[in-house]
Amino acid sequence: MDTLLVQAVKAVPEIRTPSVETVPQEAPTLSLVICTLDEHEAIGGVLSELGEHLMGISHEIIVVDDSADYRTAEVVDAYATEHAQVRLVRRYKASGLSSAAINGWDVAKGRILAIMDGDGQHDPALIRTLVEKLANPDIDVAVASRYLDDSRSGLHGLRHRLSRTGTWLTDAMLGVPLADPLSGCFAMTRDWYVQVRRHLSGLGFKILIDVVASGARKPQTAQVPTLLRARAGGESKLDTRVVIDLVALLIEKRTRGRFTAAALMHGMAAISALCAQWLALSLLLRLAMPLWLAMLLSVGAALAGRFAVNLLMTPRSRRPGNAHELHRQWLAFCLGRWSDVPLNAGFALALCMAHCAWGIAVLAGVLLAESRYYFGANAGARA
């Protein structure tokens, strides 16, 4: 089986948006995307169940795999040798379910686009029900929703409470007419995807929020009740990055893109650097350290603060697993931010020599360094 190898989709899409007119007449009714990350234990069973429940529906299944090893891909390859409707997309330097889903939908051919997890928590029987809901021409998006019939979700403890909090926050900020806007199992018409594609952020793991909040109007939705099953493989993706992504995404959608999620997270890291530098400089000056040395050391503290926040905003699968890897990433980070020393410390010292208050001087130095890094990175991305 041929495997498509791609990079992660970017927040501002560079891939040509699919067009309804370009869908071939022989296109399948359904394109189902399954995003996997180290789920080799579960994906075989999920594909087998789907084969049973989708009999009679013209379909294709696109597995988008972000795993570091080939175990998940090997299971999909083995299944696909006897099931031609299964395709594999392997990504490199990639993470996040939302961007994986967009990569899968961009190469899909179906008239209905759907998504579900590859760890066995979603009941494959739901997909047929979602497709049937979209037989109504007035429906844009059909969602398998927890909390539709009762308050249960299939989750337990902290994960359940966080899910309920995220649902409440999403409803409060966006007014999305769904019982479970954090659901990872839903289907939509290609028409709706084409409408929202260029506005999708591709951030984090809550792709449904991105899909329903990116249109010029609110979508017409249908819902079916569900509870999550026990996970058959893999592990929970819930960590600090998921929470940060959700909050940033909600702000971006609430402000209609005036404050992008990427800019918000960049701002969080910059504020952490500023606070760390203010605190370090204040302590060092209290110890009667010369201003020039205190300023240099405070820049080091700012870099450490920024690096710590970057780690919090890094998906768990890409965080350093040991002290050696942590040290290597720290050195690479410092090398990439070497210009902070002349720009931040140099400019702040110059202002202090001109009798500017050191707090304001540090703020100006941090802003100068961040501007250079932010606009330099954007220029490199455009190139």
Rank of each mutant, 00 (worst) to 15 (best):
Val224Ser: 06
Tyr373Lys: 12
Arg71Ile: 14
Leu208Gln: 00
Pro124Trp: 02
Leu246Pro: 05
Val20Asp: 08
Arg128Tyr: 04
Leu228Asn: 08
Met188His: 12
Trp192Gly: 04
Leu287Ile: 03
His324Glu: 15
Pro28Cys: 10
Ala84Trp: 14
Trp168Thr: 12
Lys133Leu: 13
Ala232Leu: 09
Ile112Pro: 00
Leu281His: 08
Pro225Phe: 02
Val20Thr: 11
Glu60Ser: 11
Ala348Gly: 10
Ala179His: 08
Thr17Pro: 11
Glu252Met: 12
Ala125Ile: 11
Ala301Leu: 07
Leu335Ile: 08
Val6Asp: 07
Ala354Thr: 09
Pro18Trp: 10
Ile15Tyr: 13
Glu74Val: 15
Val64Glu: 04
Gln195Tyr: 04
Val194Arg: 00
Ala302Val: 03
Ala94Arg: 01
Gly175Tyr: 04
Arg111Ile: 05
Gly267Phe: 07
Gly234His: 14
Ala350Glu: 14
Ser298Thr: 02
Arg382Gln: 13
Leu285Met: 06
Arg316Ala: 09
Val23Thr: 14
Asp340Ala: 15
Trp358Phe: 12
Asn310Ser: 12
Arg71Ser: 09
Ile43Thr: 10
Arg164Asp: 12
Gly234Phe: 01
Ala323Lys: 15
Arg164Ala: 05
Ala288Met: 15
His327Gln: 14
Ser48Ala: 11
Lys218Gln: 07
Trp292Gln: 14
Leu279Val: 09
Gly305Val: 08
Ala262Met: 14
Ile207Thr: 07
Met265Thr: 04
Trp168Pro: 10
Gln121Gly: 02
Trp278Met: 12
Leu97Thr: 12
Gly45Pro: 03
Gly376Lys: 11
Ser214Arg: 02
Ala357Arg: 10
Lys133Thr: 11
Ile43Lys: 01
Tyr70Glu: 14
Ile57Cys: 02
Leu238His: 04
Ile112His: 01
Val86Asn: 00
Ile61Met: 03
Ala187Gln: 07
Trp168Asp: 11
Val176Asn: 06
Leu368Tyr: 13
Gly233Ser: 04
Gly336Phe: 03
Cys185Leu: 11
Lys133Phe: 13
Gly300Leu: 08
Leu155Met: 14
Thr81Gln: 05
Ser95Ile: 06
Met55Phe: 14
Pro225Thr: 01
Arg229Ala: 06
Gln329Pro: 06
Thr165Pro: 08
Ala114Gly: 06
Gln223Ala: 02
Asp239Lys: 15
Trp105Ser: 11
Ser317Ile: 03
Phe205Lys: 06
Trp338Cys: 03
Pro225Asp: 12
His83Met: 06
Ile43Asp: 02
Thr129Phe: 14
Pro18Leu: 10
Leu351Asn: 07
Val86Pro: 01
Thr226Cys: 03
Ile271Glu: 01
Ser99Gln: 10
Gly110Met: 01
Ala269Gln: 08
Ala248Tyr: 03
Arg254Cys: 14
Ala280Tyr: 07
Leu281Val: 06
Pro13Asp: 15
Ser339Cys: 10
Pro24Arg: 07
Asn310Trp: 05
Pro315Gly: 13
Lys237Phe: 15
Val131Glu: 02
Tyr373Phe: 06
Glu82Cys: 15
Glu39Tyr: 05
Leu174Gly: 02
Leu285Pro: 03
Gly56Met: 13
Arg128Gln: 00
Val243Lys: 05
Gly321Thr: 10
Thr165Leu: 13
His122Cys: 10
Phe347Thr: 13
Arg198Gly: 01
Gly234Ile: 00
Lys133Val: 05
Ser145Pro: 06
Ala213Val: 06
Trp292Lys: 15
Trp358Gln: 04
